[in-house]
Design a protein around this nucleic acid. Sequence first.
DNA 1: CGTTCACTTGACCCCACTCAATCCTAGTGG
DNA 2: CCACTAGGATTGAGTGGGGTCAAGTGAACG
Lengths: 242, 242
Amino acid sequence: MINSTTSNSSTTETAVTCTNCNLDNLCIPKGLPRSEIGELALLVNRNNIRQKGEAIYHTGSPFRGIIALRSGSAKLLSFDQNGNELVVDFILPGELLGFDGLSSQTHNCTAIALETVNYCHLPAYKIEILAINTPGLSQVLLQRSCNQFDAQVQKMMLNRRSAEERVACFILHISDRLRIRGYSELEFRLSMSREEIGNYLGIAHETVSRIIHLLQARKLITVKSKQLKILNKKELFSFHTT
Amino acid sequence: MINSTTSNSSTTETAVTCTNCNLDNLCIPKGLPRSEIGELALLVNRNNIRQKGEAIYHTGSPFRGIIALRSGSAKLLSFDQNGNELVVDFILPGELLGFDGLSSQTHNCTAIALETVNYCHLPAYKIEILAINTPGLSQVLLQRSCNQFDAQVQKMMLNRRSAEERVACFILHISDRLRIRGYSELEFRLSMSREEIGNYLGIAHETVSRIIHLLQARKLITVKSKQLKILNKKELFSFHTT
DNA sequence: CGTTCACTTGACCCCACTCAATCCTAGTGG
DNA sequence: CCACTAGGATTGAGTGGGGTCAAGTGAACG
């Protein structure tokens, strides 16, 4: 129930469309008139699966379209000249990815599944078809793309803060995104490693460990390996204002 | 000549359009078919002026459209809870801004002129008109928006590097953007203060000073107040690979 | 049951921050 | 034309947050 992937991969393929998907008010269709969603639904490839560690797309591969995660989570990576990974973002269910390839028609990021993922795929050439038949869609995509810009600004803000504030904000940010998607906001699983969190936040993984330890000592959270529970959201949130 | 703002603010207003503007292959029209540029040209407000220090738009103000700088430069700011400035980006001639307001229809950044600027303005409601009549434009805007995403990834990379590398890369990045716009890539004016550079790069302004001093001592650049000359681009560039 | 990899914890050290003093430079007014 | 001023830029001294390195612990998996 908590997982949005429910059956339908068998006989009645056409039964699941954007119109009745439980992500319909989060995913691409959000903000589109009902009539246009129908048109969108016909163009989307559903039920694509990737196992943990597998790539959804690679840096350098041609842009093949926009992807919407239905379940599972992923990380978006970039690489520097020496081949060092940079974790650009984490993607949670109901969120979109693929924008990193739209401009140049070639992906400059790699998307890797952090656990088994099920995703829908809106092929690139169909975006152009939709742009003509369904003007609303271009607007929606443009909005989503700009949304990512807003998120980047928040990310830049974090880079001014201490390691402690970064980790606290990171936890709250994940919590918030899960809440919007209808999951528990106070208890969830961090599907990424300490290493990946540190990379994303721009701090060493040892520091992530130390700070998680610290937050536990202060009774703000409890952590058992990857399972996390927020005990005192209010005080955790105070890092925002500090 | 080096300045793209040339006369025409007087009688023959209609003489300057997107079709004959010297920025036409950099600005919004880039990538649009000739016919569609004509349509775009009719909808754009030209010759808007702001003096140094004046705002082009404010955080919280309603989104009024996409802006293309014709001459001068600007900084894009965001503010944290305590009202501290965060320099999100610098905008050079021929570059676009305003995407920070597209998603929510309200700007979450403030754009301030760093020197006298002249800009064109594509009003928001006309973007929707264009989306219907000129499907190519939506695509172009979407591409530009995603371009900014790519730039953000580069910015994140910089945050992993030492202060020295950040300053070196900053100089090269400005140089490169000016080159594309047809200005000298080896000698130019930094229109922003050390404080603003430091804020942008996530380092103290004293550190910016110290490193500029260092780069001069190594004969890689010379700096006289805001005037900068690159002496050894190759070695300066080696910071990229380090 | 052993191997491997993620995570934790400790010790040490360095880069860049902060604070503070001084030096420039552009702008202003006499 | 020069003196004065204010804000930017530079330079120095001292310090601490978080990085690195290294060792130890735990948990997952074949």
